[in-house]
Design a protein around this nucleic acid. Structure first.
Lengths: 355, 355
DNA sequence: CTGTTAGCGCTTTCAG
DNA sequence: CTGAAAGCGCTAACAG
């Protein structure tokens, strides 16, 4: 029943007939200490499998080497990638990561943040919930001197560094890619206007059209609320059965795009021959569908890594400007669904010339 | 620059002219303390926003109210569900969860477990890596008096409670379902024989065949190694092009099943009319495919919940028998791919009678 | 009902 | 080079 971790500095000091402070210093090879003493202490520590009591150290140093991480959902491809990157990075520097989720409910987020504050994390990584506006609970943590870094879902009300996806650019590239492949009547199934990411993607879409000299068509922009497969299906049907069908779809999410794809397949509409399709997020789903879905990869892992690095840096004393925004570039994952549109009357040359 | 959390018991004791211990007791409304004192202390605590220093408490009580959670992969539908369930449950009881992953690499798992041990978790939830055999690193933690509960990927070498999926029964039901729907020549694309779950599913498959009086066909059992979509495709092709094609496939995972499905669609083989198909895991993928894939849901969230409850119970002093095995029942998710086989010569009645 | 005392295990002045 | 001493903030005998 002997608990190894019960061996304390005092024990080894006593056995060696030295003081606790000397033992303490010897263990970290303090320059003041005689080599001989250092050796003896280390040897005994080894023998007894001395392991410093981290609770005492935390207490003493007011530092736990734990960081908190709160995301809206854990069971989510993008967020679990963020978590994974954050944990890998933190662990490398000897930090552990306490994870919690808000379920996009403000109350839950508050509870999670408070729990972490009280359990004494050294800093916090957070992707805020849909319902979070001011984030007083996060402010409180900051007041307690804990650095915070926001990731992906962010609010400017909080004066913290942000690591975000360059949604605008991702969307821009996606739409540009469609245009370059001969599609001109491009619909966009967007997300909710309160969500910054959704807006950025929408703006990217508009800009890409504009830069290609294409006038956007109001009716081709649909607002997803559920952001699921059924919505994609429904909107695709609606538009394609209408008087003015688009020839491509850029969707807020792969899931929505797969809904569109299902409709297209049902109608035996050739993809990408007749209609082009791009998703966003690069879920596993996109890789497996047939035709395989072109999409935009958001590099969730990378976001986790970068945000954690910033947090660790500021924990290490670096003063990070509180308005530093790190935009992680997406990258286009070109698969089958966005392949070149079949040319009818014009030659491809002419088409390309148009851009 | 006043740090709220700097207000200490001593401060409020001094201001009230009482001793620290009285203040301490008052705050937790110890029966010994005069109501008047309690009121005064609580009032002042409120006024100063006193928040107890959890580091000091942890130190004093040798308890952190943190539990550790280690899984092979975070970015994985099943595991992220487990994590989610564990965190929700732990949080409800005032515990935080420290998460880490092993990437199925023993070294990483050791590192993660040690980091958690040293950071002072009160207990550990773990799903071991493929490479873990004896788990001495986990033993070490147990020797330090920390309760451990294993989940899903488990080893009997560790004398801890286990919460696992009833893979045998899940597979049994899946295959039985195929049989009931008229399929008799059922192939199985299984996982690696060192993995317990894979074996259990295989045994369930065999048992279901046996109970239906069907003799298993060695050639119809294929060993997946990558466990990916391509393998499903490859094996399906191999078998269906061969001299003795099966009429149904039960796959170790949805991903593999989708590979099979891709081949079937390419060959314009009717699903489920000609060939039946069942996956395992119930990923999002399965819901979206067309035809939608029938599969087996493993209730990852539930596993996380149950395992955490056991851990919390034992942390609360309950003595849990170290060989308690909790098997979480799967459930059949019947979608399109396993629908009734088209009857050719026999009537359906006759077929059903056969079972 | 309340105060005194002691101490958790470690770090860190301050003196030698 | 080393030791003594103080103290982090809190709890818990023990003693009034």
């Amino acid at each position: 029943m002997i608990d190894k971790s019960k061996v304390t500095l005092k024990d080894i000091a006593k056995e060696l007939g030295i003081s606790v402070s000397t033992a303490s210093r010897a263990l970290k090879a303090h320059p003041d200490i005689a080599k001989e003493t250092v050796r003896a202490v280390k040897e005994l520590a080894e023998k007894y499998q001395y392991v410093p009591n981290s609770l005492a150290i935390s207490f003493r140093k007011k530092k736990t080497f734990n960081i908190g991480l709160v995301v809206p959902e854990i069971v989510h491809h993008f967020f679990s990638n963020i978590i994974s990157g954050a944990i890998a990075t933190a662990n490398q520097s000897g930090y552990n990561v306490m994870v919690s989720q808000s379920n996009d409910v403000l109350q839950d987020e508050k509870a999670a943040v408070n729990a972490m504050l009280h359990s004494g994390v050294d800093g916090l990584l957070i992707s805020i919930s849909n319902e979070t506006v001011l984030g007083e609970h996060i402010q409180e943590l900051m007041h307690a001197g804990k650095p915070v870094v926001q990731m992906d879902k962010v609010t400017d009300h909080l004066k913290t560094p942000q690591v975000i996806v360059d949604d605008f650019d991702g969307a821009y590239q996606a739409v540009q890619h469609l245009i370059q492949n001969g599609y001109r009547k491009i619909a966009h199934f967007r997300g909710r206007p309160i969500v910054k990411n959704a807006n950025q993607r929408y703006f990217g879409y508009l800009q890409a059209l504009k830069d290609a000299g294409i006038t956007p068509e109001k009716d081709w922009v649909k607002h997803c609320v559920q952001i699921n497969e059924a919505e994609g299906y429904r909107f695709a049907k609606e538009l394609l059965e209408g008087p003015n069908p688009p020839d491509a779809f850029f969707c807020i999410t792969d899931l929505v795009a797969l809904g569109v794809l299902r409709y297209l397949k049902e109608q035996k509409i050739e993809v990408p021959g007749e209609v082009g399709l791009m998703g966003f997020s690069n879920w596993k789903l996109a890789e497996i569908s047939s035709p395989a879905l072109s999409t935009v990869d958001q590099h969730g892992y990378e976001i986790g890594v970068r945000a954690t690095q910033m947090l660790l840096d500021s924990l290490a004393g670096a003063s990070i400007s509180s308005d530093a925004i790190t935009e992680i570039k997406t990258n286009l994952v070109i698969r089958e669904s966005s392949g070149r549109k079949k040319v009818q009357q014009q030659t491809q040359e002419a088409l390309v010339g148009n851009n």
